[in-house]
Design a binder for these strands. Structure first.
Lengths: 212, 212
DNA sequence: ACCTGAACACCGTTCAAGT
DNA sequence: ACCTGAACACCGTTCAAGT
């Protein structure tokens, strides 16, 4: 019945680092980010709290592992002959889809530091794919930073409000604010941002090509 | 020497809700967001942890009070005859300046739910100022949502990386990523976004005015 | 190598008690 | 009304001990 081995005497579960992140993500999606604690995760895995430390250095390391797990869900960044507008749109839409799929865990990925071990390599590959699409290194860096800022902020707030039980207790005092965020808005903002970046950063700066 | 009254016998400090938020913000800016706990704040104010509960219902309520305190630092949204581009730019630049001034506390404001008691009224007034500048209610709602998403995400990540001691341990593995974020980039992104929104949302949709 | 219980220094908050 | 200490149910993590 359980996908996990029967525990023979004490606990011969043979936990792995991946078991931790799988259980952690399931727990977060089921009960929210605050529910993720070492002790809570241990009871979830039917082991002692200290057993987790065999597979993970600390709580921060656990979160790094979760972020790494989440990044694996994103398709690896690569260029397939598209324009830079198409690559960036595809990249950001994948990001958006992950936020929809795992709204509670998404925040861990979105706010993970750029220089953390799971994020840095993924970011490097993303920048590289932007450059292959014809952007200069400087353009790629700036456009990624700006687009990532937009997606991070929009999607975190969206995910929080789509998950947290909307209280509606101030909805009356703030007419027109309810539903300030919806996903179509994300796509519209993305369109606007890409169009604006093309105008001000790509076409604008160097006297580069007028047509892609 | 201390701006606070000498404590006579026990503690005749006459704490107020504002004393709590002032001390909380100072503590957060000095030692980071994680340092803000009821017990820690109490020692900061030289009172018993439970004394705080006279002025604040709970930790969440304390955070609401801090957010309210931060919003007061922003100039109240109003329209002074500018174009919508100028109002939105002015609004977002004030938001940016607050992030620069109080990088550690900023996150509390940026991630406070739209429908929380301190945020909702401020948001309503902001939407109203956008409408006075000529946007339709629907345009104002969308443009605020998108711009706020951009500013929230960009500035939170910027504030975190500008404060947290940059480890530089993965800087080598991620060439071109170090310094992915700087404040000039925020302004460039804002320019691009406003230009793009004008193209795709304001000029684009209804057959409205061609010139502001 | 992997798992564990006891212990330490934290945390938010309830409750009953003091002024 | 305002402040307080003791107590409860949590938390991450160290350490010494088991297999």
């Amino acid at each position: 019945m359980a996908p996990r081995q029967e525990l023979s005497q004490k606990n011969r579960n043979k936990l792995s680092r991946r078991d931790l992140t799988t259980a952690a993500i399931a727990l977060i999606e089921r009960e929210g980010l605050d529910a993720l604690s070492m002790r809570r995760l241990a009871t979830e895995l039917e082991c002692a709290p200290m057993s987790l430390y065999t597979h993970v250095r600390s709580r921060d390391d656990l979160i790094d592992a979760v972020v790494e797990h989440l990044i694996e869900q994103l398709a690896p960044p690569e260029w397939s002959g598209e324009s830079w507008q198409q690559v960036t749109r595809r990249t950001l839409e994948a990001y958006r889809d992950l936020a929809v799929q795992m709204p509670n865990s998404f925040e861990l990925l979105a706010l993970a530091p750029y220089d953390s071990s799971p994020v840095a390599p993924h970011l490097s590959r993303t920048v590289a794919s932007f450059e292959q699409a014809g952007l200069t290194p400087e353009q790629a860096r700036q456009i990624l930073g700006i687009l990532d800022g937009y997606a991070t902020g929009f999607l975190i707030v969206w995910a929080r409000s789509s998950t947290r039980g909307r209280s509606d207790e101030y909805a009356a005092t703030a007419p027109g604010i309810a539903g300030l965020r919806d996903l179509e808005m994300f796509d519209r903002g993305l369109d606007a941002l890409i169009a604006g970046l093309d105008l001000t950063l790509v076409r604008g700066t160097d006297g580069g090509e007028v047509l892609a």
